[in-house]
Design a protein around this nucleic acid. Structure first.
Lengths: 205, 205
DNA sequence: CAACTTAACTTAACACTGTTAAGTTTCGGA
DNA sequence: TCCGAAACTTAACAGTGTTAAGTTAAGTTG
C-alpha cells in the first residue's frame, strides 16, 4: 500500500462526500433549489473544489440517478422468487410505487425531468439485476409465455411500457399535484392498488 | 370611448403581448431556460416593465397554465355528443393525449412540475365546460350509472383518477424519456391506444 | 537533499439570473 | 397651467453556475 493508493482512496472519499451531500440536499429540497455553494458548505470545501471531481452540476445529478436506477433494480430482486407471473407483476408494480413514494425527489429527477440522453452507462443493460426495465420485461415475457394475457398483447416491450406508464402515472401525478386541492384526491394507496388491478385485469385473458 | 377606456385597453394589450411572448419562449425552450430579459427583448420593453403587469416570473407561468387548463377543457367539449359512455371516455382520453403531444412544454408546466398550490382560480370549478377534470368525472359517472363498469368501481373520483393517471403516465414518460434509448420505445400512438383499451377493459364488466 | 512537477485545492472574478429602488417621461384631469 | 399618477427606464443588488489564476502540500527525480 504505497502513497499512490492512498491518494486514489482519498480522492474517492471526497468524491463520495460530495455525492452524499448533494443527495441529501437534492432529496430534501429538489435539484434547482440546491446551489453548488450550499453543497460545498456542507462538506466544508470551497465551491470550486467540487469541479475538480465533477464536470458540472448536471454530472452530479447524473451520477446520483445512475446509482438510484441500480438501487431500484435491486429492490426488484426481492420479487424474483414469486412463481406466478401475475402476482409477480403486481408485487413489482407495488415495489415501484413504493420507491416513488419513499424518494419523491429522486423519482422526479429520474423519471419526470427531461435530461440530455446519456450515452455511456455504468449499469449493465438487459441484466435484470441491474436494469429495472429488463426485470419488468422478463416478468411480462413470463406472463405471455404462460398465456396469461389476451392474445393481442404479445409485444413484450409494448406491454411492459403500458404497465410502467400506468404506475408511473399514479406516482408522478401524486408528486406533481399532491397539494392541488382542485382535485379531490383519493388516498394514494387506493389509487395504486386499483391501477395495478385494472391494468392486470385489462391485460389478462 | 374616453381616454380612460383607451388606457385600460392599452394596458390589456401590453399584458397580452407579454403573455404571448412568454408563451412562445416557454413552449419552445421550457420555463427555466427562458429569462425575463429575453421576454422583455422580444416585446421591446425593459425587463422591469414586465413587473408592472405581473408580480413575478411564476405569475406569468400561472396565468398561462390557467389559460391552458381552460383550453384543455374546451377541447373536451367536442366529445360532448358521444352518447356511449365508453366511447366517450376513449375519445376523451385520446383528446387528452393529443393535447400533451401538441403542447409538451405546456403539459410539463401544467402536470409535471410541482407548483405552490393556487388558492384563487379564474376558472369555474365543477363546470365541465371549464374544468377538464369535472368533464372526465361526468363521463365516469355516466358509465357507472349505465352499469358499464365492474361493481367494485363505483367511486367516481377514484375511477377518474385512475384513467387520468394512465393517460398521464403515457404522455409524461414520452415527454421526459423520449430521447432515452435505454428503452426500446414502442410508437407513442400504439402506447396511447393500448393504454386506453387496457384501462377500459380492466374497468368494464 | 534540493529542485521540479503535479494534484488538490482557494480566492476572486465573470457573465448571467430574478427582482427592486430610484429616477424619468407622458398625459389625462382639475 | 399645473399636478399627480401611470407607465415606463436605468442602475443596481444579491444570488447563480462556472472558470482563470494563484497557492499549498506532497511525491518524484537529479
Amino acid at each position: 500500500m504505497g502513497p499512490r493508493e492512498r491518494r486514489v482512496r482519498e480522492r474517492e472519499e471526497i468524491r463520495g462526500k460530495i455525492l452524499d451531500a448533494a443527495r441529501d440536499l437534492f432529496v430534501a429540497e429538489g435539484y434547482d433549489a440546491v446551489t453548488m455553494r450550499r453543497i460545498a458548505d456542507k462538506i466544508e470545501y470551497s465551491p470550486t473544489a467540487i469541479y475538480f471531481h465533477f464536470r458540472d452540476k448536471d454530472a452530479l445529478l447524473k451520477e446520483l440517478c445512475e446509482h438510484d436506477f441500480l438501487s431500484l433494480a435491486q429492490q426488484f430482486i426481492a420479487m424474483r422468487d414469486i412463481s406466478d407471473p401475475i402476482e409477480k407483476l403486481k408485487a413489482t408494480g407495488k415495489a415501484y410505487l413504493q420507491f416513488g413514494i419513499d424518494y419523491p425527489n429522486h423519482y422526479r429527477l429520474m423519471f419526470m425531468t427531461p435530461h440530455p440522453p446519456i450515452t455511456e452507462h455504468e449499469l449493465e443493460k438487459d441484466n435484470p439485476e441491474e436494469d429495472a426495465y429488463a426485470f419488468l420485461k422478463a416478468i411480462v415475457a413470463q406472463a405471455i409465455a404462460a398465456r396469461r394475457f389476451k392474445p393481442e398483447y404479445k409485444d413484450v416491450d409494448l406491454v411492459a411500457q403500458i404497465v410502467w406508464s400506468g404506475v408511473h402515472g399514479v406516482i408522478s401525478l401524486q408528486i406533481a399535484k399532491q397539494n392541488d386541492d382542485w382535485v379531490d384526491w383519493r388516498p394514494l394507496d387506493d389509487r395504486a392498488e386499483v391501477m395495478i388491478d385494472v391494468l392486470v385485469d385489462g391485460l389478462a385473458r
